[in-house]
Design a protein around this nucleic acid. Structure first.
Lengths: 156, 156
DNA sequence: CTGAAAATCACCCGAAAGTATGACTCCACA
DNA sequence: TGTGGAGTCATACTTTCGGGTGATTTTCAG
């Protein structure tokens, strides 16, 4: 219990002791100086030097080390499918229609809905409907995810 | 600004305060116990405080910052393209920064800006800025095109 | 220390994307 | 013959994107 307290407040105790010691020393010096009635400058100079040293010591002792965190990205191989034609089954399983597949392809090329509409001679709304259906069937919420999913499933 | 200063020099401030308090206490005790000419003591106390502060300041100012480096290894999935490493040059050629590359990766995973922001602990606006810069550097206008382009150039 | 680049964040605004719902046609199939 | 799926289109609405601009902070090399 007491040991723990001592350990935990080691710094405080050390400081307190040294402070007490210093004050003692000062008292003593003061006494001598009063008797000798010597220069106050010497006295204050000593104090200044001593306490400057103390300050430096404490600062160096207590200064928090800056923590710098470096994140190293470690590459990990991921197994990629042999890139063959493993797609047809998935398409039928997901129930993607021809039109939807067309739209999905154009989507994967980065075309906007408007551009897809122009390419397929359809209205913008139709493309929106198709893409909504595609998202639902692929279980995603955005075109980018749809493309990602389609790549994973090798259906494009 | 001021808050930051306080935080950074917390220890110094704490020490300074406690020192001041201690001296105060000692002075008070001394004053009560001994009715003497205490001008010298006040004087030396002031000097002590001042020069301790100076010491702390000097130490904090002059000491080389202790830097503690923590290396955190972060595993990152990487799909190694069959053609080998054809990417690094393109990245530097396009001038894509680290952050931009990160955003680009998450973009390719189909995440929305909001989700990317959450993943990287950034604000939505920051992600928007990054993606805008990415689009400009890749010479595209939409995230889907950016992903497409990135795949073509093997930089993801 | 200084300046440039990178990174972060904000606000505004218009465009694009996405949701929800309904309707119409065509065509195969029971 | 009518039923249902696919395809088409529309309106109205909300959300997300993307462009433009400007500001501050961090980082880093000279």
């Amino acid at each position: 219990m007491i040991t723990r307290f001592l350990v935990r407040h080691k710094m405080a105790i050390i400081y307190g002791s040294s402070l007490a010691l210093l004050l003692f020393l000062l008292k003593w010096l003061e006494w001598r100086l009063v008797i000798l009635d010597h220069a106050v400058q010497v006295y204050s100079g000593a104090i200044a030097i001593l306490f400057t040293g103390l300050g430096i010591w404490l600062a160096l002792k207590l200064a928090r080390p800056k923590v710098k965190t470096i994140v190293v990205e470690k590459e990990v191989m991921v197994t990629r499918q042999p890139a063959g034609t493993i797609n047809e089954k998935e398409i039928t399983r997901l129930g993607l229609s021809t039109r939807e597949l067309e739209v999905l392809h154009l989507m994967a090329e980065g075309l906007s809905n408007q551009e897809i509409a122009g390419r397929l001679f359809l209205s913008l709304n139709t493309i929106k409907t198709h893409s909504s259906n595609i998202f639902e069937k692929l279980d995603v919420r955005r075109r980018t995810q749809a493309v990602e999913q389609a790549r994973k499933l090798n259906i494009i």
